[in-house]
Design a protein around this nucleic acid. Sequence first.
DNA 1: TGTACATCAGTGAACGCGCGTTCACTGATGTAC
DNA 2: TGTACATCAGTGAACGCGCGTTCACTGATGTAC
Lengths: 217, 217
Amino acid sequence: MTWGRRGSGERGYHHGNLKEALVRAALELIAEKGPAGFTFADAARWAGVSPAAPYRHYRDRDALIADVAKRGFEAFTAALAKAWDDGRPDVMAAFDRLGKSYLDFAKREPAYYSAMFEAGVPLDADPQLRETSERAFVVLRAAAEKLVALLPAKGRPPALMVALHIWSMTHGIASLFGRGDAARRALPMPPEELLEAAVLIYLRGLGLNEGVASGRS
Amino acid sequence: MTWGRRGSGERGYHHGNLKEALVRAALELIAEKGPAGFTFADAARWAGVSPAAPYRHYRDRDALIADVAKRGFEAFTAALAKAWDDGRPDVMAAFDRLGKSYLDFAKREPAYYSAMFEAGVPLDADPQLRETSERAFVVLRAAAEKLVALLPAKGRPPALMVALHIWSMTHGIASLFGRGDAARRALPMPPEELLEAAVLIYLRGLGLNEGVASGRS
DNA sequence: TGTACATCAGTGAACGCGCGTTCACTGATGTAC
DNA sequence: TGTACATCAGTGAACGCGCGTTCACTGATGTAC
């Protein structure tokens, strides 16, 4: 519990890394009590600093949460891009990893996920935030693009629509069943399997089956 | 703005309908500022009553929100059951109505929807609340049951899984794009169409197409 | 290398405010006889 | 029909508390010369 303090020993007059520490505090507190469950003063206390100190780094609590959301989207985009890996070795396998990675992020980083999608941060407020969040969707969209390209050219569904479908499905599962934490409905199977089955059925509905994609048989 | 006051004229010493008025207040305030954006005192003020008065009806703010969620689930169940109408005149048509009705509820009653799914009300806290929420799912599950019954008996997917898929999809669309209010991503098509397309593709993936279901051709 | 100075990042005390909650109370309503 | 009484549902004043925010301040760090 010595975030932001370099090495051991006492912290001097200056914290040295307060901005980072406040972000960590926000994540910790969101994880503990939900996105609405903490205050600016809480974050300061958590970072071991006077209640006035955070004002040197953020205009107010909303600015802090918006920053957390922004960092969340960055990590999210990185995770998705890595899982997708430009569709290697084949589109279906990569697509499967993409979905799992989405769920995995929601489970591994519930606090980020909360800040990004449930904290009521207005995306419009900060153009940089909007752009960052957009980049995550770009990965999904690119994947959908490659996916529909496997289909015969006539009657191909729009890739944007496919991307939105997959996103909605995954977000739905993540927010209904995805977080380990609390008060959610019991499931007869793990969320990953639920998602995988749904995506498989959906893709079959599009006219894609395993054979078309992987080249095996 | 005279909720709970019978007819015109001044309200006497007794409000007469305070419990209902508090529920309305909560809905109004949730719609305005989100589920975390109001206080017990706010609700009292909205109802035109002293800050101590709500304690006659609810232990605390959480109890009020839980009651709002419960009423929400009741209205939700009623709406879904009505739309489903036991699968009449045919399962596919009824199923289509069911999905639309879900989205319609989220759009028409964003405050209820918020209280039900986003306010962080622990379902376990109140067994009655849990049971009420369960009843909504029962409708969905019954619909999925009739749906899979259209498929050849061998290789039928579990109805529970299908119900969860549809629920996740719909909830995902509702919470990402469904509410008219704020800060959500722009869509190239209305959410209803997005959902309808997704469900159609999904059902095709299950092996259901329009012909199988409606009997037309 | 040393010194003077500007800037930065934190302190801590203070303030006004609204919230949650309690309390003794009181006006209104219902009921027994 | 009238009266006495119990119960109910609200009042309003009071309290302690923590939050958000400002302020003059000060210790630490960086830089010019």
